[in-house]
Design a protein around this nucleic acid. Structure first.
Lengths: 184, 184
DNA sequence: TTGATTCGGAAACGATCATTCCCTATCCTT
DNA sequence: AAGGATAGGGAATGATCGTTTCCGAATCAA
C-alpha cells in the first residue's frame, strides 16, 4: 500500500492534480479503480495522502542534509545545497508536490491551501532555527535578521523548484555560494 | 477582443489551465462558446494568447519599476520591490501565469515549456544587465558575479509568487533589504 | 429595400471524467 | 473441509469536458 502511494506521489508530481485522471492513477499505482476507492474516499483523498507522504519524505531528507554540517552556517549551507540538487535534472523536472499544490490548488482548495501554508511555515521555522543556531555558535553574525532571512530563503527554495521545472540548469556550488551572502 | 483576452488571463491565473473549463472561460470573457472557437483554434490557443499577453504586460510593469531608479542598484531594488508587491495580497493570490505555466504545464506541454523557459531567460538577462549597469556606474561592486546573482534573483522572484499564492505575508522593504545583500 | 455576408449565441455531439456497483478469488475460522 | 468475510478487479453510470454545428441578428453594398 505504501509502495502504491509512492507511485501516486510520482504521478501527481509529474502531472499535477487536475491533469491526473483516475486512469493515470490506477495505472501508476498498479491498482484497479475499485481498489483505489476501497482504500481512499475519492481522488482528493488520494492526493492528500500523497502530499502527506511526500512532505514527510522531504522533511527527512532535509534534516539529513542539515545533519551533515558541524555548525549552524554549515547546516544551512547543506540544506540549500540539497534543495538545489533536488530541483535539478530528472528529479527537478518531476517537480515538488508542495510547490505544485501551492500554485495549482492553494487558491481553490482550502484544505490543501492550509496544509501548504503550514508546511511552508514549518520549513521557515526550521531555517530560522538554523540561523539562530549559527548565531549561538558564532558561525553567523548576530546582526542577521533570522526571520526575514528565513522567509527570503524559503522564497529561494520554492523558486528553485519552479526554475528547475522550467529546465534552467542550476549550479549548486555557485548558487549557494551567492546565497550565503545573506548570512553576512 | 483584447479586453476579453484580459479576462481570460485573469481566470487562467486564478484557476490554472486544466481547472479552467470552456464554460469558465466563456463566462469570464463574456463570449459564447462559438465565438471563442471563432477567435481561437482551441482552448490551448486561448491559453497561449493569454500567456503572451500576460508576459507583455508584466514586462512593461517591470521596466517601469526599473525606470524609477537612478542607478543600476536602485533600478534593481525597484524591480525586486515591484515583484514583492505583485506577489502579495489579492494580486498575489491571483498568481503569476508564468509560474503557473512552469509548474502545471512545462513538463507536459513542449510549446508552453519552451515559452516559459525563454521568458525566464529574458528576465534573467534583464536582471544581469541591471547588475552590470550598476557595476559600470559604481553602485554595485565589481566582484559581484552578475550571471549567478541574476539566476538566484530569478529564483527569488519566482519563489515570491509561490509563497504569495500560499498566503504568507510579505514585507517588501524588509525582504528586499535582505536580498540587496546579494549585491555586496 | 433587398440580398449577401459576416459575426455572435446556444444547442448538440462524442469522449472522457470521477465515482459506484457487483462479481470473483483469497484467506481465516471452525 | 466448508463457510464467511474481505479485498481486489472491471464493467456500468451519470456528469462534465472540449469541440462542432447550426441558427438568428446585424452590417454593408447596391
Amino acid at each position: 500500500m505504501d509502495t502504491a502511494l509512492d507511485r501516486a506521489v510520482r504521478v501527481f508530481r509529474e502531472r499535477g492534480y487536475h491533469a491526473t485522471s483516475i486512469g493515470d492513477l490506477t495505472a501508476a499505482m498498479r491498482l484497479a479503480t475499485g481498489s483505489v476507492y476501497k482504500a481512499f474516499r475519492d481522488k482528493h483523498a488520494v492526493f492528500l495522502a500523497a502530499l502527506e507522504r511526500y512532505v514527510a519524505l522531504r522533511q527527512e531528507q532535509t534534516r539529513n542534509a542539515a545533519a551533515k554540517g558541524t555548525n549552524g552556517r554549515e547546516r544551512l549551507r547543506h540544506v540549500l545545497l540539497s534543495y538545489v540538487e533536488h530541483s535539478q535534472g530528472s528529479e527537478g523536472r518531476r517537480g515538488c508536490l508542495v510547490v505544485g499544490s501551492a500554485v495549482e490548488l492553494s487558491a481553490l482548495d482550502p484544505v490543501v491551501g492550509a496544509r501548504v501554508n503550514s508546511q511552508l511555515k514549518t520549513n521557515e521555522s526550521f531555517i530560522a532555527g538554523l540561523i539562530r543556531e549559527g548565531q549561538a555558535d558564532g558561525s553567523i553574525p548576530r546582526h542577521v535578521e533570522a526571520d526575514d532571512t528565513a522567509r527570503l530563503m524559503i522564497c529561494i527554495t520554492q523558486g528553485l523548484r519552479v526554475v528547475g521545472k522550467a529546465r534552467l540548469p542550476l549550479d549548486g556550488e555557485r548558487l549557494v555560494g551567492v546565497a550565503m551572502k545573506l548570512l553576512a
